[in-house]
Write a protein that binds this DNA or RNA. Structure first.
Lengths: 341, 341
DNA sequence: CAAAATCTGAGGTACGTAAATCGAAAATAA
DNA sequence: TTATTTTCGATTTACGTACCTCAGATTTTG
């Protein structure tokens, strides 16, 4: 039978109330007594029964997720995964509120952050846009003991929270290595497609990609970035124009949204099957493109994993317990036609 | 505030005891009354408070993990991840026992399975070796309501449990696609290295690999399998002998253990840097080999994920609750030097 | 219709912890 | 020393569910 607080109290020669004060870091216990209790705890191997503790505490983890509105498909996937988590969240005494703010709008994000009542909310997960106002709003939350994790795109200037997401520079490097190795030794040009170069993650992916191409694949050169603006139609036209204008293109790296537009262009002309195409984000469309040979590889980060990880980390921070690093690190996933989940 | 059993009782116009009988599927309630209660439950959106239920139930999930003994590094990684999980398992009212049995020994595994007391144990996770005795032992557990998951290597003949692991045929196909694309169009031979061809997963990886090479990369031919026997020294000598004997080798696929021996051979001669090498299992050694350019890609399955997933699935089966498919599917991970976690 | 079987209600205890009160004891300061 | 603050004990209530008993109500069976 597992030891209980009663056993600890008895073993330490103190009362239940004192054990409780020590366990919950309440004031009014001499350090000598704290040591006695802690000795008893480790001697007995006592671990708090979380079921009972949560029950008694009537604690509800009130979390807020703030994600950008708009067509970006990864954000929409995050949103739908959040819905899944919300369905199960009642079981964990967790209440999740999702706030959507206009994309690329630092002021709107800052307002959303400022609207958070630190009396009510104990954790916030946010897809951060960098701006001084946002930084200050995050700092305020930190001052008022609201735990923060940044999602998807790190906010390096804000050091007080956890980051849940991938290293986008490394993701770009990964795409470049695949591109270089898949293309082989023949010379050629690579077309780069981005959602919008305002977003930090796309900038980082591009940086990593171009670094590796320049350093390791001198036979390849990167063309200027085509901006698809997270929009399929725009991406389609821009890519089509680029392909006709540049006959020497041997590969395409789509580092953002707009996969559907790209797929349209590729499937329009069988000659495009020769191209090596690497894209981001596993969706129904990109899966089909992989299977049909239009795409050669897809780089992905698991939105569901990201959401669940953010929730677990926030809960752990609120409880003051440890996080399992291996479980919470988000992987840069590579999918070929053969290892689709 | 979340509704409780009391609210359900009131809403259904029955007593607490009746609600309890319905919730816990106890006998002695007319079907009309059951319907009334269930209607009230769904009307109020009642969900059982697991913290309270577990506390009251005094339930302990008693799980047994059976894994092969021996030098296989993936099994050792499973074991160490199990230790990690055990440390945290007290928090979840979960008690995990790890049994190690001789590798490749169906009889020993069957004995271990037979030793499981279905009165005490409610879930078993096993790295299955196929044999009639094992199958019968698994069937007995199923008859006696012990939930079973098979780990790492599926046991297709046993359909009553969940499988936690990757599709090894697909893993082999993935390796082959990478190999074919990395090598390019030049002709050559591929050396295949396996731990021991007795193990099902290696057989499957080889099958997938050879399928894809034969179908899609006619410039490549696969040499007969070199058996490394899960042993670094054996692998080293066998690979070295093969490389000197076959000058036309352009790639090596190591589908099992023995990475250290392979790395030794590769680092011995700078000329081997030309080889395209794809291996399984991310370890300290294979990471370094990736970074040093000795390996070109590593296929991996996450041992920690696998263990945690097995535990969650067993708990869900015992509780009769749902599992989150996306969370429990084990991915065929591809690592290049750029996306190492 | 009566007896038997089945169903339901009321109420209790238990699980392990949190959190509170209030007075007693001990330590520290004056 | 006395006064004051700090530390500690004893006890109680509450959280939501599980599980038990026993009596009373209802239905089914003979």
């Amino acid at each position: 039978m597992r030891p209980t607080v009663h056993d600890v109290a008895e073993a330490a020669g103190v009362s239940l109330a004192t054990v409780d004060r020590v366990l919950n870091r309440r004031a009014g216990v001499r350090s000598a007594t704290v040591a006695k209790v802690e000795a008893a705890i480790s001697r007995l191997g006592y671990v708090r029964d979380m079921s009972a503790a949560n029950l008694a505490k009537q604690r509800i983890y009130r979390l807020v997720f703030i994600i950008p509105d708009g067509p970006n498909s990864f954000m929409r996937r995050l949103e739908s995964e959040l819905e899944q988590v919300k369905l199960r969240s009642a079981l964990n005494r967790t209440d999740i509120t999702v706030l959507k703010v206009p994309a690329f709008d630092g002021a709107a994000l800052a307002r959303a952050l400022e609207s958070i009542d630190s009396k009510m909310i104990s954790g916030v997960a946010v897809v951060a846009t960098e701006s001084p106002m946002v930084r200050e709003a995050l700092a305020r939350l930190h001052r008022e003991n609201v735990h923060v994790v940044t999602l998807v795109s790190d906010a390096p200037a804000f050091k007080r929270g956890d980051y849940v997401g991938v290293d986008n520079v490394a993701a770009g490097r990964t795409a470049a290595t695949l591109m270089g190795r898949f293309v082989g030794r023949r010379p050629g040009k690579i077309a780069l497609v981005a959602g919008s170069m305002l977003v930090r993650d796309h900038v980082e992916r591009r940086m990593g990609f171009e670094q590796v191409i320049a350093a390791e694949f001198p036979n390849l050169t990167c063309l200027p970035v085509i901006e698809g603006r997270d929009d399929d139609a725009t991406a389609r036209e821009a890519v089509a124009a680029c392909l006709t204008g540049e006959p020497e293109i041997v590969g395409i790296y789509n580092m953002g949204a707009g996969n559907r537009g790209l797929i349209d262009v590729l499937s329009a002309d069988p000659a495009h099957a020769e191209l090596t195409v690497i894209a981001h984000e596993l969706s129904d469309h990109s899966r089909r493109a992989l299977r049909d040979g239009l795409f050669d590889a897809v780089i992905n980060q698991d939105a569901g994993h990201e959401v669940r990880s953010a929730v677990r980390i926030l809960q752990a921070r609120i409880d003051g317990t440890a996080v399992i690093d291996g479980q919470e690190s988000i992987r840069i996933e590579i999918y070929l036609r053969d290892n689709l989940p």
